[in-house]
Design a protein around this nucleic acid. Structure first.
Lengths: 126, 126
DNA sequence: GATACCAGTAAACTAAAGGTTACTAGTATC
DNA sequence: GATACTAGTAACCTTTAGTTTACTGGTATC
């Protein structure tokens, strides 16, 4: 813990950490980007399957987010024109795997935060 | 890598990961929360020091974010009424340390993403 | 005596994000 | 023949986030 604190402080002093975190949040922050990516981690999906998998998202927002994610190299849009009606498959690129650590860290933290809320722990330290 | 993929897939199947990540983003997402926390990791600061440290934030937004962060148990607002003018110190609580893994994961990812953009790498895999 | 700093707050505004409804055209199901 | 599915798009609206400007009252500096 103390060890890690020193690590993190070194990074902070250089102002690099703030910029990196801000950049990360700019790219993958927002309500839907990570939920979409997580849904696609499980398996590639078609537009409406994805819409059902990501609870609460609207077609408009999903469409916009997918364009964004594709532009940033996270997903690939595959069109099977020979099908009727046309099948469109969205799948993750190799680059999305780089997000695994971030996703797991956020997931772990979010989970323990929920636990903390449920058990009603108060912070004991100032 | 393959090992980790199996890990993450297990979590996804249970739908827990999505909920946890969404919760985490709800609490610490947004443009300013993590930059403020990172600035305070370095050391406790007064309102205007913090405003200078977090580049680009306005007083109104900083004030709102601080209230939010305090309500969620991340920071402590300490008032030194004996000073003239009154000194107000914002400092992190112990609970903020739980964010270290998240901050470092986002920082690492953001940094390597910036590197990728600069060197103009294209993804080689579909 | 004017200016700047302290820790904010209030009001009014703009910008960005997200939601809702309706619609496309071709096919399959009831 | 009505309904539902395919993959979205367009227009419109609401909500949230963030900015700008001006202001507080007491102290220190020029």
């Amino acid at each position: 813990m103390e060890q890690n604190c020193i690590d993190i402080r070194d990074q902070i002093m250089s102002q690099k950490l703030v910029k990196s975190v801000a950049d990360a949040l700019y790219i993958i922050g927002g309500k839907w980007k990570l939920p979409i990516i997580i849904a696609l981690f499980a398996q590639s999906k078609r537009f409406n399957d994805l819409k059902r998998a990501v609870e609460g998202i609207s077609a408009r927002v999903l469409s916009n987010e997918l364009k964004d994610l594709e532009a940033n190299g996270f997903i690939k849009r595959r069109v099977y024109a020979e099908d009727t009606p046309v099948t469109v498959l969205y799948e993750l690129t190799e680059y999305s795997n780089s997000l695994e650590e971030v996703v797991l860290a956020l997931g772990n933290w979010g989970e323990s935060h929920l636990m903390k809320l449920k058990t009603g722990l108060k912070e004991v330290q100032s």
